[in-house]
Write a protein that binds this DNA or RNA. Structure first.
Length: 481
RNA sequence: CGCGGGGUGGAGCAGUGGUAGCUCGUCAGGCUCAUAACCUGAAGGUCAGACGUUCGAAUCGUCUCCCCGCAACCA
């Protein structure tokens, strides 16, 4: 039996601060990782930062930093984020890491040996000011908008990847594994994209144009184009090229990514893997896009972006985690809403869960009962286990949003049960009260388990409070300025 | 006709052929163990509009209107 589980996020490009979209992806991944660990899987959870490329080089210049200093600075911001939000990664990989650079070159060579990398002259419109090729779409009135200059026709030799060769194998992969990409609509997108025909794409740049990148093996004038190197991190991190045994243990991977990254992860990367003789990924999970409160896209230009660090300050890590998992559909777009966040916190965490915990602990203490699992009625127990099973089913298919609904239902069931049983009523016998409270204690322990991937901190406190029978305000009133 | 997503009670969302459902809010009642919490019940929707297919449509088809994304920062 294979009890290992390997999960990764996409590596964000470190040309700015972490934003809410990164938060969503990292937290989703963390919840899955914690869930799998709880279930007994040996889990490897990878995340990190993508740090090469021209943009990085230019941005560093703008801030008067060397490229390395620049990426160090922003990579650290992502690490800070992970720490603040309890992201339990096993490795935080940086594409500037030594082992990654080696692995990217090994991967390149493998693909080259397989005949999928070739050199070709590329002719295009080149803006001298930007020192980069422009496409028609980049231009305004035929001119580069940044330099107000017409780009020149320019030709250079670059390496290309034979993407076109993988059309059939990719379609085959999509056909054979209908849940390869989730949700199904995103798989459909790939089927029509790949089915429409594939063009080979350029995977290197001349070093003089792109000084910040990984060298192409045996060609000092060329560096790898950023994302070719970036994608390889998913195999680097588990020992590709350095530790085959370790690699075999973990591969294939379950990957999370944003909707705009579908092509890279589900098509190009899969073709690259085939080229290097590696099995495809296990799943590509595509989360939704978080929109601004008014339903439009968040954008730095408009200035309506929500910062996870602000949410941390206002609501704390656990409430934010809970909202991102339980308040918005796992695979669908949805607007960010402060009201919704506060509502979920209050209704689900303070009232449904925290209050239930507290009232049960109080009553156990007051009645001085000795609870025991053997006293619980079968019908009660099976109802609890039934809700747990539905939770598990959704978690196993990575639908965190649907899974959490069943945790909420379990809490409600506890609240209904306690009202129906009235353990405080004077005509209740000691046996009856003991049975009721044993059941509730059992339910709470299960509930804590279901919530623990999302609320690791609160659940640990809850567990200990229940064990020691100490009253506790698990979710205090939010102090909102 | 560029492509795609969407328009469901006050708000946010489920629901892809067979009596319209969930959370919040509102109203009424109950309970008192608890973080003014918890439980029960009620009101509230011609499922954007029109036509069509069907014994039967929110769900399928055609057309119309409206919102959003696909170009930039970016998950």
């Amino acid at each position: 039996m294979n009890d290992s589980f390997y999960l990764t996020t996409t590596l964000p490009y470190v040309n700015g601060e972490p934003h809410i979209g990164h938060a969503l992806e990292f937290i989703q991944a963390d919840v899955i990782a914690r869930y799998k660990r709880n279930k007994g899987f040996t889990t490897y959870f990878n995340t990190g930062t993508d740090e090469h490329g021209l943009k990085m080089y230019q941005k560093a210049g703008e801030e008067n930093l060397s490229p390395q200093e620049y990426v160090d600075k922003y990579s650290q911001r992502f690490k800070d984020f992970c720490k603040s939000f309890s992201i339990s990664y096993d490795r935080f990989i940086r594409t500037t890491d030594e082992d990654h650079i080696k692995a990217a070159q090994t991967f390149w060579n493998k693909s080259l040996e397989n005949g999928d990398i070739y050199k070709k002259a590329y002719t295009g419109l080149y803006c001298v000011g930007c020192e980069e090729f422009k496409t028609e779409k980049d231009l305004v009135d035929g001119k580069c908008p940044d330099h107000n200059k017409e780009p020149e026709e320019h030709s250079e030799e670059n390496y290309f990847f034979k993407f076109s060769r993988y059309q059939e194998p990719l379609l085959d992969l999509y056909k054979k594994q209908s849940d390869f990409v989730k949700p199904a609509s995103k798989l459909q997108e790939m089927i029509s994209f790949v089915g429409g025909g594939l063009q080979d794409f350029s995977i290197s740049r001349r070093r003089e144009n792109l000084p910040w990148g990984i060298s192409v093996p045996n060609d000092p004038d060329q560096v790898m184009y950023v994302w070719f190197d970036a994608l390889v991190n998913y195999v680097t991190t588990i020992g590709y090229g350095t530790n085959e045994k370790e690699f075999e243990k973990w591969w294939p991977v379950v990957q999370l990514c944003g909707p705009d990254n579908n092509r890279f992860q589900s098509a190009m990367w899969q073709a690259m893997l085939m080229s290097a003789g590696i099995k495809p990924s296990k799943h590509i999970l595509i989360h939704g896009m978080i929109l601004a409160e008014d339903g439009t896209k968040m954008s730095k230009t408009i200035g309506n972006v929500v910062s996870p660090f602000e949410l941390l300050e206002t609501y704390g890590a656990e409430a934010t985690r809970y909202y991102l998992i339980s308040g918005i559909p796992t695979f669908g777009d949805s607007s960010f809403s402060h009201d919704q966040l506060e509502m979920k916190y209050k209704a689900d965490l303070q009232n449904n869960f925290g209050n239930l915990l507290n009232r049960v602990i109080t009553m156990i203490n007051k009645k001085e009962v000795d609870t025991s699992e053997s006293l619980i009625s079968e019908s009660f127990k099976s109802e609890v286990l039934n809700l747990k099973a539905r939770y598990t089913e959704h978690m196993d298919s990575f639908d965190l949003f649907e899974a959490m609904k069943n945790a909420q239902k379990l809490g409600s069931y506890g609240n209904v049960y306690i009202t129906e049983q009235e353990p405080w009523a004077k005509d209740k016998t000691e046996e009856e009260i003991t049975e009721t409270l044993s059941g509730l204690e059992y339910l709470l322990n299960e509930l804590i388990e279901l919530y623990s991937p999302v609320l690791p901190d609160a659940c640990e406190k809850a567990k200990s409070a229940l064990l020691k029978r100490e009253n506790i305000i698990l979710f205090p009133e939010l102090e909102i300025a």
